[in-house]
């Protein structure tokens, strides 16, 4: 009972006062003109270490890009588990010839081509971005592994695993979609025995899709390697892919 009165008293006392809450962002508090708030790194009171782990998320996401994360470790740290796993994964990938990377990095040193160009050239050499090459690029250019991985996973063009000898690009632009591109992909999936985006086990065919090839009047269209095919029907597609598979001795799956 007493508690209720106390609560009521607090409520009543605040009733005539101006609200403190500001309806951000419709209303803005009247701050000094140059006020920008203050960034600081929180220090963990127990360990005395900064809580920041230099994950660069704030740097990536800052809308006005005013945050720069520079970090180095004070300690000789043992190899973290993640890095050991990464090393193990590199061992799993087929070995790559690191000599192919030299002209790419020389070009970077000479012309200062951007990170994306370096990665594009690397992919041109290997057909994908091998982990070993990414590690080497990171070491040579000083760009962190996480940043390279961030760029690689952002753009559709970059592939992190080897692809088949022949890439099948099925156009999924609007005109092709309306003309039945999903049926074409479905037919190919069935004939090849792999899902879209995957490679057959014999590493011969990769089934992929592209947004638009600009050949809308021939819709639906697809490209196998350098060969192009227009005005497809599911039936014709099956015939084309069966012929192509027979020609190179590919097996389903």
């Amino acid at each position: 009972m007493l508690g209720m009165f106390k609560a009521m008293r607090t409520t009543l006392r605040h009733l005539p006062r101006k609200p403190i809450t500001v309806q951000y962002p419709e209303e803005r508090p009247a701050l000094p003109e140059r006020s920008r708030g203050l960034f600081r790194v929180v220090i963990d009171p127990v360990s005395g270490e900064p809580r920041c782990r230099a994950c660069t998320l704030c740097e990536t996401n800052c809308p006005v890009q005013v945050i720069r994360v520079n970090y180095e470790s004070k300690y000789e740290l043992p190899l973290p588990n993640a890095a050991r796993v990464a090393d193990a994964r590199i061992d799993l990938q087929p070995p790559v010839d690191m000599k192919l990377l030299k002209p790419v990095l020389d070009d970077w040193r000479e012309h200062g081509t951007g990170l994306i160009a370096v990665m594009q050239n690397t992919q041109e050499q290997y057909g994908y971005l091998p982990r070993a090459a990414i590690c080497e690029i990171s070491t040579q250019t000083g760009v962190s592994l996480s940043q390279i991985y961030g760029v690689a996973s952002f753009y559709n063009q970059f592939r992190l695993s080897p692809i088949g000898k022949y890439v099948i690009d099925v156009c999924h632009g609007t005109a092709c979609h309306v003309a039945g591109a999903p049926l074409i992909t479905a037919a190919l999936e069935e004939e090849l025995g792999v899902d879209e985006g995957k490679t057959t086990k014999d590493m011969l065919f990769t089934l992929s899709s592209v947004a638009c090839m600009g050949a809308c009047s021939q819709a639906p269209v697809m490209r196998i390697g350098d060969e192009t095919y227009g005005n497809l029907t599911p039936d014709r597609t099956r015939k084309i892919i069966r012929d192509a598979m027979a020609k190179v001795g590919a097996v389903k799956g």
């Binding site: 951007g114 990170l115 994306i116 760029v151 952002f154 753009y155 559709n156 063009q157 970059f158």
Partner: peptide
């Protein structure tokens, strides 16, 4: 490098600078 959002001008600039678009 195949990102539709890079048609947006600030994303395009980020992409030329070698960042995520």
């Amino acid at each position: 490098a195949g990102a539709f959002v890079c048609g947006e001008e600030t994303a395009l600039i980020a992409s030329i600078e070698g960042k995520r678009g």
